[in-house]
């Protein structure tokens, strides 16, 4: 169970860490300053959540590693985030679509984790949920505004959805470890979150006048760590270079 729990916590912390880093890449580059600040806030929310998830992961592992060690000193094959969150930002619409898809899943997940039999997990989920409900509000509003906006913004959002829908599928992948945690009442099966996610997606993407792709194919390999995309290594190079070049550096 300890291994399953560690794996589960890495998946939570790596999703929030990698997405946080991706969003932070917009800092100073967003289309308007209000969006720039909002994106930086969301990146910082996710980084705070990462601290809690990886902090607990390090505690559960009991190998003397800290949350910082897990974040800064692991290589790509040890990361357990879904491929969706490591994909490059693309244009602003692609970033918002990725954010919306992740937020819709994230709200469903945290709602369930808030009732976890593991009190530490329930506490992290309850605290994160308040932040993530706002993230969802914001990304849903923007997806609707751009999808149901001009001809160009609509076309870009549809392309973003077509591009990313099959990556969202990985969020609901379920393995033996998920079943073990579910049996212990610690976490829901990812597959159980799909219905709630679909309800949110259908409502928002419908208002955005976007068509959900008709495919059941889902990319895979991130949450198992077996086959990340080429993009993760490049992201880690940027994110980890300081600790790699100056081991133990603090400020």
């Amino acid at each position: 169970m300890g291994d399953h729990l560690f794996e589960f916590l890495l998946r939570q912390g790596d999703n929030t860490l990698i997405l946080s880093h991706r969003i932070s890449e917009w800092c100073g580059h967003a289309p308007i300053i209000e969006e720039d600040i909002a994106l930086a806030n969301i990146a910082l929310d996710l980084l705070g959540q990462t601290q809690m998830w990886l902090g607990l992961a390090a505690e559960v592992e009991g190998a003397g590693r800290s949350a910082d060690d897990l974040a800064m000193l692991r290589d790509a094959w040890d990361f357990r985030n879904a491929i969706l969150v490591e994909r490059p930002n693309g244009d602003f619409g692609q970033t918002m679509m990725r954010q919306f898809l992740f937020d819709a899943y994230h709200v469903e997940l945290l709602n369930r984790l808030a009732n976890s039999t593991d009190e530490r997990i329930a506490a992290i989920a309850a605290k994160s949920l308040k932040e993530v409900e706002y993230h969802f509000e914001r990304s849903a509003t923007t997806v609707i505004a751009l999808g149901d906006g001009s001809e160009e913004s609509h076309a870009r959002m549809q392309a973003a959805l077509d591009d990313q829908w099959t990556f969202a599928g990985e969020l609901f992948e379920t393995d033996a470890g998920d079943h073990a945690l579910n049996d212990a009442g610690i976490a829901p099966l990812p597959s159980e979150l799909r219905a709630g996610f679909n309800t949110r997606a259908i409502a928002v993407l419908g208002d955005a006048t976007l068509n959900i792709p008709e495919t059941t194919f889902a990319h895979s390999g991130g949450r198992s760590g077996k086959r990340h995309s080429e993009h993760l290594g490049h992201l880690l190079t940027q994110m980890q270079w300081l600790q790699r070049a100056y081991p133990g550096a603090t400020w």
Binding site: I32, E34, I37, A38, N41, Y134, R138, T141, A145
Partner: peptide, 20 residues
């Protein structure tokens, strides 16, 4: 003050710019 496309987004932007 800040820019926003509508009142609802103005509230959200204000939340992010002025109440963080």
């Amino acid at each position: 003050s800040l820019h926003a496309p509508d009142a609802e987004m103005a509230i959200k932007n204000a939340r992010d710019v002025y109440t963080r």
